[in-house]
């Protein structure tokens, strides 16, 4: 059932309560040129049972003709673009009197000359919300009513492969850290050499005092941990022994 349930009304008196709905797609950010939308783009109007379907016309519209009274959910199905859902009420469902009052203010968008048609009201609707939770009015009128359906987003089907790029490689925090430390290692000796003697002395003093350099630094202790001496019960002699050993080497 893909054919539009449109109808020929040649000899029917105009008095018949009939409602036509024309939905228009205007160029927008997501649809710069509606004429390029694929021909399979179509709108469905569902209340219950098989939905009414309208295909996209050359004029970038969907036309539903001879709608019966009811409250419909309108969806537009398109390969390239996501469209908003609309609620279409035909006939005296809901607060008609109120809406008719609004009609005068907003300016009725009537296209045809069918003045004695059913009242058609089109609102934005939000999926997963209560049906009475309506959004902006997209069109109100009697008989032949035009409304706008807006694109919400484009459809991006493909995922790009994150290929190798030098810039993104350099930007990664690991590489940045590595580069920084490399810079320090390479640059430090030059910095030290270029310091004036007083500052250098001060700096060396600071380094000696710093907890990192001292023997009490737990990290240093852990690194130089001598299992054998610890097991032998010599807790403090280890450092001395090692120091002594190295001095011996130097003395040679």
């Amino acid at each position: 059932m893909r054919l539009p349930t449109t109808i020929l009304l040649p000899f029917l008196p105009i008095l018949t309560l009939a409602a036509d709905l024309i939905l228009q797609i205007h160029p927008s950010q997501h649809v710069p040129n509606p004429s390029l939308l694929p021909p399979t783009t179509h709108a469905t109007l569902h209340a219950s049972g098989p939905p009414a379907t309208a295909y996209l016309t050359r004029a970038n519209t969907f036309e539903f003709r001879n709608l019966t009274t009811g409250s419909y959910l309108l969806n537009v199905h398109c390969r390239d673009v996501v469209f908003e859902g609309l609620r279409v009420d035909v006939g005296g469902v809901g607060a008609v009197g109120e809406e008719e009052g609004d009609e005068q203010e907003e300016g009725v968008k009537e296209v045809g000359g069918k003045e004695k048609g059913e009242l058609v009201q089109v609102w934005q609707t939000f999926r997963g919300n209560e049906w009475d939770n309506k959004g902006e009015v997209r069109g109100v009128g009697r008989g032949r009513v035009a409304a706008e359906v807006r694109a919400v987003a484009g459809k991006e089907y493909y995922q790009e492969r994150s290929g190798f790029s030098v810039l993104s490689f350099l930007k990664s925090p690991m590489i940045l850290m590595a580069l920084f430390s490399l810079g320090l290692i390479v640059g430090m000796p030059y910095l030290m050499e270029n310091m004036d003697p007083e500052t250098r002395a001060e700096f060396e003093e600071m380094q000696k005092k710093s907890p990192l350099a001292s023997a009490n630094n737990p990290a240093a202790q852990l690194q130089n941990f001598d299992l054998a001496s610890w097991m032998a019960g010599k807790s403090t002699g280890a450092d001395e022994g090692e120091n002594g050993g190295s001095s011996q080497v130097r003395r040679r």
């Binding site: 054919l3 539009p4 349930t5 449109t6 109808i7 020929l8 021909p39 996209l56």
Partner: peptide, 20 residues
């Protein structure tokens, strides 16, 4: 019971008519 006209170049609907 449907008569439909389609744009030959791009497959868009031109008009559609249903007989009573």
């Amino acid at each position: 019971s449907h008569v439909t006209a389609w744009s030959a170049a791009d497959g868009r609907l031109v008009w559609s008519a249903e007989s009573l």
